[in-house]
Design a protein around this nucleic acid. Structure first.
Lengths: 344, 344
DNA sequence: CTGTTAGCGCCTTCAT
DNA sequence: ATGAAGGCGCTAACAG
């Protein structure tokens, strides 16, 4: 019932030419007569000939496709990264096969396996939060499948990476608060399994130390990034004596959750309690009371650079690449209070 | 320099077996001796043999990959759809190749071409806002490439589709306002090129008519969905005499932009002016003043159902499929005022 | 200028 | 129970 596929063989038969002549004609090979070439191309056009990528790939071992493993598509950070990836990949003629890992190691391992089997030319991976064993990545190394790690650094794995310096970001946020005159600054840190949690805490502590400011007992609370936990942690912070004047939150969501709790307790945000955070979440633009400052981590640039790196690995495997580690400089973004806009 | 790939040929040579024996052994073909099978599988394991999907695809004409063309990845609606797609695709063993069209016809056409060439098994497409010619889709039909349209209905193209009944949604929103006691209700409609714009306006008008309510002159304003235009349109609406008591906005962003303008003019949201909208945007959960009500369009379900449909087309092409058109029932979501949470 | 041949990796008759 | 041969669609020497 289904139409038989149009191949160069079909074209050759119809034109009473050999298969190779047709092949060359389609590639504008110089040795083919103009006359013949035109006949071939005309028929190919008419028959809507489409070269079979599977056959080409079989020969060249190239799919012109990159595999992308991302932990969470609902997180705009990774979507922005994806956009950066897409920009470069498209520009270079590559397609993207995307696998969400849902922050689960198992899904991540499955994705690595599937993508390897499907013979993508290389992989871009932001490891899941729960990934603590790395055989699947070591296996990629063993198989010599090029891959680049993004966002979440994995010191244990020898592979190029593009990450953002969380420590510097946290330090910048804290400095910002200190310069604004805040002294009793607390930190809502992320879960231990995220390397970023430790880095941000370090940045926070460093800024405090450098300014000779003490971190009061209990001023560092932990959240697993779910709303209830963040709310609980915030209540703990705000019940401390003396009460913190400002909080460096793990990310924008954390800051919002904390802000809600604070207001429920009757505190005025940015007066009684200042909040700063990580992420520069697009939704901030729509909030009446976004975090006072937030850190832009350049997800887009991260994706783009990782893709550039990967394509270099793929397209010139001859060169011995010292495992590149690109470290992006985070950027402090100060959110203008909404009042400015109200005036307009 | 690069390791030569492990193929069944390599295994055969090492084991002094024929290629076909190895092939069969790996597939647990019954006619292979247990002893041989074990030796083959053991070596394959040790050598990290990975079957070459390109070779398989060449024979079977199956990539176990679906192409997905989405207009805008930064729009959570499409990401939710993507999650639905991914759920079903993964469950059925398919990978996804994703191409953003950035709401541009040209990117969309390019994507269709690339995906067709790469021989994906089928396509899921939400057409770009600017798509008004459909040769690229008709071509898919001609090539007998299975595809399913999502979200944005294209009456001109004969293909299965999964969409959400925008008209019913707008009607529900308007009814909600009327039941709340609002009478002077305005509408901020979307751009003409979106079929959804017309549908939502119709739903709005129908609800008004059914309740015998007039739509005052100028009570329908248009926005291209950018913030400045929405702000301008809102100013126009709010300058009208009599001033609208409520606005049915095209989507949540529109409602937020409108709300900001209203407050800048000194109006109290949900008292002097009620706002309802489309989208059930996740950010609503973090807003102090989300739209009073919004329409959930079941992006996730849409993606999942479209994928189910597509896989049916792919896996049983024999059956003559009457072009299915699944129409999802939109759902009215009433946003609780934030005060409730403040109490907690 | 064009045709013949071989081969990419794998599966699948058909022989043995 | 195993091997040999052909073919999926295409390209690229190698012949003429």
């Amino acid at each position: 019932m289904s139409k038989l596929p149009v191949t160069i063989k079909v074209i050759a038969r119809q034109l009473k030419l050999s298969i190779s002549t047709v092949s060359r004609a389609l590639q504008n090979h110089p040795s083919i007569g103009l006359r013949t070439r035109e006949r071939v191309q005309a028929l190919a056009q008419r028959l809507q000939y489409i070269p079979n990528q599977n056959a080409l790939s079989l020969k060249t071992n190239r799919r012109y496709t990159l595999g992308v493993i991302l932990p969470d598509l609902l997180n705009p950070f990774f979507i922005q990264a994806l956009e950066g990836i897409e920009e470069i990949a498209t520009e270079r003629g590559y397609l993207l096969t995307i696998c969400p890992s849902h922050e689960k190691v198992n899904d991540e391992k499955r994705a690595v396996r599937l993508l390897t089997h499907s013979r993508v030319d290389g992989l871009l991976i932001a490891v899941a939060r729960t990934t603590t064993t790395y055989e699947h990545l070591h296996e990629l190394t063993a198989l010599e499948v090029p891959f680049v790690l993004m966002d979440r650094p994995v010191t244990e794995v020898k592979a190029p990476s593009v990450t953002c310096d969380s420590r510097a970001g946290a330090e910048a946020l804290t400095n910002f608060l200190i310069e604004k005159g805040f002294r009793r600054i607390a930190h809502l840190q992320g879960p231990a399994e995220l390397e970023a949690s430790g880095e941000r805490r370090e940045g926070f502590l460093r800024a405090m130390n450098r300014h000779g400011l003490p971190v009061e007992a209990g001023y560092i609370q932990t959240t697993d990034l779910t709303t209830p936990t963040t709310e609980r942690a915030t209540r703990v912070l705000l019940a401390l004596q003396p009460r913190p004047e400002a909080i460096v939150a793990f990310n924008d969501y954390t800051a919002l959750d904390a802000g809600r709790v604070a207001r429920a307790l009757g505190l005025r945000i940015n007066q009684d309690l200042a909040l700063v955070s990580f992420g520069n979440h697009p939704m901030n633009a729509y909030l009446d009371c976004p975090p006072l400052a937030t850190i832009e981590q350049h997800a887009y640039a991260m994706g783009a650079q990782a893709t550039g790196l990967l394509l270099r690995l793929i397209e010139s495997p001859a060169v011995a690449h010292p495992p590149d580690h690109i470290r992006l400089r985070p950027q402090l973004v100060i959110n203008e209070p909404r009042e400015a806009l109200m005036a307009g």
